[in-house]
Design a protein around this nucleic acid. Sequence first.
DNA 1: AATGAATGAGCCTTCATTCAT
DNA 2: GATGAATGAAGGCTCATTCAT
Lengths: 233, 233, 233, 233
Amino acid sequence: MNLKSLSGADPLAHDETRRQLLEAAGGVFAEVGFRNATVREICRRAGANVAAVNYHFGDKETLYAEVLRHSQQRAFEKYPPLMGVPADAPPEEKLRAFVRSFLLRIFDDGSITWFGKMMSREMVEPTGALDALVAERLQPMADLLRGLVAEILDCSPDDEKVRLSCFSVVSQCVFYHHCRTMITRLFPEQRLDASVVEQLAGHIARFSLAAMKHLPDLKTPRSKPVLAARRRR
Amino acid sequence: MNLKSLSGADPLAHDETRRQLLEAAGGVFAEVGFRNATVREICRRAGANVAAVNYHFGDKETLYAEVLRHSQQRAFEKYPPLMGVPADAPPEEKLRAFVRSFLLRIFDDGSITWFGKMMSREMVEPTGALDALVAERLQPMADLLRGLVAEILDCSPDDEKVRLSCFSVVSQCVFYHHCRTMITRLFPEQRLDASVVEQLAGHIARFSLAAMKHLPDLKTPRSKPVLAARRRR
Amino acid sequence: MNLKSLSGADPLAHDETRRQLLEAAGGVFAEVGFRNATVREICRRAGANVAAVNYHFGDKETLYAEVLRHSQQRAFEKYPPLMGVPADAPPEEKLRAFVRSFLLRIFDDGSITWFGKMMSREMVEPTGALDALVAERLQPMADLLRGLVAEILDCSPDDEKVRLSCFSVVSQCVFYHHCRTMITRLFPEQRLDASVVEQLAGHIARFSLAAMKHLPDLKTPRSKPVLAARRRR
Amino acid sequence: MNLKSLSGADPLAHDETRRQLLEAAGGVFAEVGFRNATVREICRRAGANVAAVNYHFGDKETLYAEVLRHSQQRAFEKYPPLMGVPADAPPEEKLRAFVRSFLLRIFDDGSITWFGKMMSREMVEPTGALDALVAERLQPMADLLRGLVAEILDCSPDDEKVRLSCFSVVSQCVFYHHCRTMITRLFPEQRLDASVVEQLAGHIARFSLAAMKHLPDLKTPRSKPVLAARRRR
DNA sequence: AATGAATGAGCCTTCATTCAT
DNA sequence: GATGAATGAAGGCTCATTCAT
């Protein structure tokens, strides 16, 4: 560590600049998205030269992927999907933890929100960076949820009911960053910051559990005319 | 074909070009978003001149607003929020219709999907065009839903429970276009086209109604005290 | 032609700008080569905007190919390989014409010299544009020369002697643009402009014809010891 | 490997790095030319730091000049213009040696080819480095050739016939690196490596000697009147 | 003596917009 | 009324060079 003076420039400065670029890029990408973000603005915020991005990351796209990876890692380190709930806890409690951690990741103050915002954009306009993320982080999370829901509904994880209920649970969570804009316009009385996480998480968990506990048992869940006809039999 | 242009003005050709620009722009904006869309590509698809957009609409942004307004109008004409359910039908049936019309707007084959796709993008990156849309179309829809949910839950439309339940219902609907990308990656077995509307609408309505019918009655709906209480057991 | 006023901008202006860009680009590419040439400089010389190259040709590379094609065409239209020598003329006379036209192409005052200079650069650092040129123009020329030389040497066009003699003839021609720089440094008394074409062409034709008429007949054309042995005979 | 750098200066390491830079730069300059070569690539190949070029040579251009000087020296040490032919040998034999050494310098496997390739580029796009080279090495070579040719033609070295014949001889040699690209395209059957030196040298010497021995004696060697006159014969 | 992080000028390209016709 | 040639600002990226260490 003290040898650095022997070998020319300061490697710490290198990492520091790199970190500041990641930081600045996180903000810019979250605010305006990949395409709208300019390398110039990122470098300006990082207090670095226009060429810094290319020097440290090769190109804008690689920087983006790095930011996404970085913020995802921090988000899941700080708020793991089950939030420390013991392994033998009942599935209902695990589901509550799942929902809560999801919202905490969305509403966290600070650089972790980048993750949520960048993910929102990835949904609408996926970049190559999404695939790696899906494989290593999102797929396991989806499988976890599927297992919990199957247990609560007491049926196979491959049951259609399970899949659709997973969608119902997750949709209520992601709603708060996908539709933030719309919520504040249509329901100005709804606050949207870290202070409401428990309120929202509580509602989503209660709503979903109540639904799953009392979901009517359908034999043939498809299309109405058919339902009517078949029901008569 | 356009020899008429030789003999002075032709108001029909004028309107026709304008219509084709709207049509072409709808496709392009839905596919790649506002920023990524190029005026050149839109004009090319419309079979019009590069300058046509500026001539007919002033600038790219105005064209965008016009497309949004236009496609919204068509979407709600074809699929009104209550889908012709009689005014004296029970709120549960109205809710089913509401959800179904929502999904039909999303999954409609043809130019109406533009509306859904453009709305997805508006959520993430609102343009000025959103505000007019909210005032004239979305606010009434939100109020309608709020009323239905209040009736089902049997409490005041201003109750927090109502608001959060509205979010729960809507979130399950919008999920299918916001998260389309993610769904197809994580649940490849889930089809996502017009053929699944009844399946999804059925599930969302059942799920939401079951939830609302059995939502536990909380005095203190927020926060940890509740969790703490459970823990004591 | 008079209808143009009906359809907006002036198409003649389009072609004129295009022509000026070709003209300007010819000069710049010939002077400094493809890589060193800047689009800015080309546009500046053409009195056009920086974006003009991209507008008219798509990109720098296409412009380059176009310039090469254009100047090649002009060069061979003005100075065809046989220069109008009658088809039944003796091969010696045709060879003279061939050499003369080659040098005229090199030393022509004006935009045709671009061709020569650009070709010199292509030899050292070929771009993709070269292949098309070879196929459509240079290969026929090579075949023509091969035929002439075979006739003069009175043997098969596939004979090695023919091929090497072709090289000898052509090399003496191309020398004057490949090595112009060196010639003016080492032999400052040698003028190098259009006025010396006849002098040089005369020499090259005489030199080459004398050589071919008296080329010793070799059985085994390799390696010195053999030469030494032959000398003794 | 370089722990010595920890204990102060090491003049050997200094020279070694310098040598490796020259070596690496030779390869790069020969392959892609001065402009296309990047300092980074040269340093990478030399296993040295990005700043090494500037540190050891001041700038890229000086490095280039140094490489040219260096490779020229090696080329002429290994293949001197007369290749050890005795001073009293007949001029014809000296000419053969001259041609052969020229081709050997071009086709040598290894770092000597750099010289040829760099020279090709210098012809087309001379840098400042050329002048020094001309003065100290190329001028003497030109004078040597001029003397040989004058002797063979039996006239004054200042005679135009001598000068033009020098061009004829040299042009046939340089052809094989200037036009390598074109030769392989138009005459794919022609091999171009060290193994063909004797074949080519033999042809060039025979061709040129035959030509010079039988060059017609012209009184007025320029311009068409002569051609007309000849035609009358 | 030697390093490597950082720079800034400059390149090609894209695109919404303008304006004479 | 409508065109399309032309614009200029801006974007991503490259590269020789510098300078503190």
